[in-house]
């Protein structure tokens, strides 16, 4: 019943208002856009413009105040916490600036985590996790703990984990923010490869160099989108 099978993210009149005491902060003020399957989109904007808020809503970690959000054909605006958890598990993969791996847990088991919550048998979990780790180029480091891995390697583990459940969308929030430039370009190379293989990727960044790797840039200011243009177009 999906009229536009190519559309994976469909956002209409999305607003988010934070109420902290008397003060009301309108972090998102009516966003409308769609993202197609296979697109590689960068979201840019100065600090406080609402990028993280949008990321949280798109990532189903938070609910919009008003407006609708359809992810992969499902209206997720009205779902409860458990249903949102289910969506995150099945449809989304997160890559964070700070990697967010479980510290005392080796790479392989970090990657199996989403499959664990999906109720997959242990053997199958490990097989798939190893596959993903190999895909992102650190299969041979599977038994190392995060503390024994470099930043770049940790981020690769995080990417493997985000991909292990075959998500509809890969969300990355400043994925290279904690990495040196050489490692950054390796990670961006990996994103390019994933994009080329058909992954839908949304990256939040303030770095034009990172945004350049994407095909489309959404620029935000004060909770609204001020520009939506292919990467490389004049600002």
């Amino acid at each position: 019943m999906n009229e536009r099978p190519n559309v994976v993210i469909d956002v209409a009149n999305l607003t988010k208002t934070y109420a902290s005491g008397e003060l009301q902060v309108q972090a998102l003020r009516g966003l409308t856009f769609t993202i197609n399957r296979g697109e590689y989109v960068a979201i840019m904007g100065p600090s406080g413009s609402g990028k993280s808020t949008l990321m949280n809503v798109l990532g189903c970690l938070d609910r919009a105040t008003t407006g609708t959000y359809k992810l992969d054909g499902i209206d997720v605006s009205q779902l409860d916490d458990n249903q949102l958890a289910e969506i995150r598990l099945k449809k989304l993969g997160f890559v964070f600036q700070g990697f967010n791996l479980l510290a005392r847990t080796d790479a392989l088991r970090n990657v199996t985590l989403p499959l664990f919550y999906a109720g997959m048998p242990a053997k199958e979990r490990e097989r798939r996790a190893l596959e993903r780790l190999t895909e992102v180029g650190i299969g041979e480091r599977a038994r190392h703990k995060p503390t024994e891995l470099s930043g770049g390697e940790q981020q690769r583990v995080a990417i493997a984990r985000a991909l292990v459940n075959d998500p509809a969308v890969l969300l990355a929030d400043e994925p290279t923010g904690n990495l040196d430039s050489k490692t950054s370009s390796e990670i961006l190379g990996l994103f390019d490869r994933l994009s080329a293989s058909g992954r839908t990727i949304i990256v939040v960044t303030h770095d034009e160099g990172v945004a350049k790797h994407s095909r489309r840039i959404l620029r935000m200011l004060d909770g609204v989108i001020i520009s939506d243009a292919p990467a490389g177009a004049p600002v």
């Binding site: 916490d81 958890a85 995150r88």
Partner: peptide, 16 residues
């Protein structure tokens, strides 16, 4: 707390 955050972000339900 952070670990719990990670687990929930990944898709762990409350009951889990």
């Amino acid at each position: 707390t952070r670990e719990i955050g990670i687990r929930k972000a990944i898709g762990a339900r409350r009951s889990q």
